[in-house]
């Protein structure tokens, strides 16, 4: 009865919560022992499992007949699947414990263990979380925040209307304050799921034209819940920009090609959600805590 290989861990786990399953796990242990010693299971557990499975499929007699007749082969198939999945889970757990990523050192692939961490939430329009391509990241010609001669650059892909990008802002600013040898390059990826994200991208570039990109950047995040055409103009006034020039720039979408280019660049990097951070080849997706950013920076900082 090969299915006892699966039955044992399942019943043992359930047995933590119910006495009924403890008895079943004892039967599974006995069956397992007898199977390993090439003897037939004598507890009836195999029959009960096979019959229960088959009975559940009685609405489809052909399928039920197949399951009943080929139960041993199907059991082997599931046992192999279990062993393979146990192997890969173990490997993932080891990687997670050793490198903080279940896919191994320096991997930027999606890690299931991270998904429950708050910092792994992100704004996205993409269904599939996939590999990122840090070698496509561009920094040249982009506004830089912090020391222009810094040894290490954080490249952030964010969206002005994304709440998670806003959530990451304090940690990023604190990092720049605590690490003078680190600077920041921000790429705007206006996601269509948010209202006013594209307008915000345009407005920030119009502010850059007047040399106040970062001030305008901060203003947008400060007032993220009140973004509109009117507030974008108002922000310009508050930052003592030339409002007429700003309004003309904003209303004519002067930097449309830059906005489009930025978005296409983000796609080429494989961005599937904002914020995404690159620090050298390491990447972090989601609103990172100060501690997480600091750990990567300390690791990546040139000696």
């Amino acid at each position: 009865m090969v299915l006892c290989f699966i039955a044992l861990p399942v019943f043992a786990l359930l047995g933590l919560f119910s006495v009924r399953y403890r008895e079943l796990s004892k039967e599974a242990i006995r069956c397992l022992f007898r199977t390993v010693t090439l003897k037939p299971c004598d507890t009836g557990l195999d029959q009960r499992i096979r019959s229960k499975f088959t009975a559940k499929l009685m609405f489809w007699p052909s399928l039920a007949r197949f399951v009943y007749a080929q139960f041993t082969i199907l059991s082997w198939f599931f046992v192999i699947l279990l062993l393979a999945s146990a192997f890969f889970s173990g490997q993932g757990l080891y990687n997670y414990a050793a490198y903080g990523n279940c896919n191994g050192q320096n991997s930027n692939a999606f890690c299931v263990f991270n998904v429950v961490r708050p910092e792994q939430q992100e704004c996205t329009t993409f269904d599939v979380k996939h590999e990122l391509y840090p070698f496509n990241v561009k920094t040249k010609g982009h506004p830089v925040r912090g020391n222009p001669l810094a040894k290490l650059t954080i490249v952030e892909y964010g969206c002005y209307s994304c709440p998670y990008t806003k959530e990451a802002e304090p940690a990023v600013r604190q990092i720049l304050k605590d690490f003078p040898e680190v600077n920041l390059v921000y790429h705007d990826v206006p996601l269509s799921i948010h209202s006013n994200s594209i307008e915000a991208a345009h407005a920030a570039l119009c502010a850059q034209e007047q040399g106040k990109y970062w001030e305008y950047h901060d203003k947008i995040f400060e007032r993220q819940d009140k973004l509109s055409n009117e507030t974008f103009i108002a922000f310009a006034g508050e930052l003592e920009l030339n409002v007429t020039q700003f309004s003309e720039c904003y209303s004519t979408n002067r930097y449309q090609n830059v906005v489009d280019q930025e978005y296409n660049d983000a796609l080429s990097v494989g961005i599937y959600g904002t914020p995404t951070f690159f620090i050298n080849n390491a990447n972090l997706v989601g609103p990172q805590k100060y501690k997480s950013l600091k750990a990567v920076i300390e690791k990546e900082m040139p000696r």
């Binding site: 009836g44 029959q47 009960r48 096979r50 019959s51 229960k52 088959t54 009975a55 559940k56 009685m58 009943y68």
Partner: peptide, 13 residues
């Protein structure tokens, strides 16, 4: 078919 299997399938019903 084993008689216990028959009884167990009926029990499931």
């Amino acid at each position: 078919m084993n008689h216990h299997d028959v009884a167990l399938m009926l029990d499931s019903n």
